Simulated assay, not measured.
Amino acid sequence: MSFRERPVLVYDGDCGFCTASVRFLERRVPTSAEVVAFQFADLGSLGIDAEQASYEVVWVARDGRTYGGAQGIARLLVDAGKLWRPLGMVAMVPPFRWLAHGLYRLVANNRYRLPGGTPACALPPGQRPGSG
């Protein structure tokens, strides 16, 4: 298993809603993570692929383990410490884990309808404008 200096949060940089959400997190939730759009990340070295990265946010821990979707966000909150840590910890245990997953999927599946979202958010990465 490879170890990294800092965790990495990978998100879909082609999605306006995702980008706006990440910018909000960067302003409000202190994290030690490197935050990078999957389109600019070395996905192979992170142990993830474009399909997963376009489907959900992915937290890559220092030890190389990956956590997607709501669990990725929970790991980010734990990493942030202070008041964020308890919220992240709660989101990791059932039944709150299940609720967090359902809420995450509801938002992710409808991100193109949300503020900042674009019709391109609804398309698979290979079908987005400019994907060639």
Rank of each mutant, 00 (worst) to 15 (best):
T19R: 12
D63S: 11
D79F: 06
R23T: 13
P119F: 13
R65C: 07
L9Q: 05
V93A: 11
G117V: 08
Y67K: 05
A108N: 06
T19G: 11
A120L: 02
P95C: 09
L87D: 03
P94S: 12
V8A: 09
R75I: 04
Y11A: 07
Y67M: 08
V93C: 08
A108L: 04
L76I: 12
P86T: 14
T19D: 10
C121D: 06
R28A: 14
F17L: 07
F96H: 06
V29G: 07
A20Y: 07
C15K: 01
G102I: 05
Y67G: 05
D42G: 07
E26T: 11
T66W: 01
P125H: 02
Y67R: 13
L114N: 09
L114W: 07
L123E: 09
V8K: 03
K82M: 13
V22R: 00
P94I: 08
R113M: 12
A61H: 12
V93I: 14
V8C: 06
A41N: 03
L25W: 03
V58M: 09
Q127R: 13
V10P: 00
D79G: 07
F3L: 12
I48D: 05
R111P: 00
I73V: 15
R85I: 06
L99V: 11
E26V: 09
A61D: 13
R85L: 05
V35A: 07
A41W: 00
R113T: 13
S2N: 14
F40H: 15
V58R: 03
R128E: 07
Q71T: 08
A108G: 10
M1P: 12
R105I: 13
N110T: 08
T19C: 12
A37L: 02
V22P: 01
R62F: 06
R62V: 08
A37N: 04
M89A: 14
E26C: 08
A41Y: 00
R6P: 01
A33M: 03
V93G: 07
V22L: 06
L9H: 04
F3S: 13
R97W: 02
G44H: 08
A122S: 12
N109R: 13
L43E: 04
P7D: 08
L25E: 01
F38L: 07
V22D: 01
T118A: 12
M92S: 12
W84Y: 15
E5P: 00
L99P: 00
V36C: 11
P125Y: 02
A70S: 13
D79Q: 09
G47P: 02
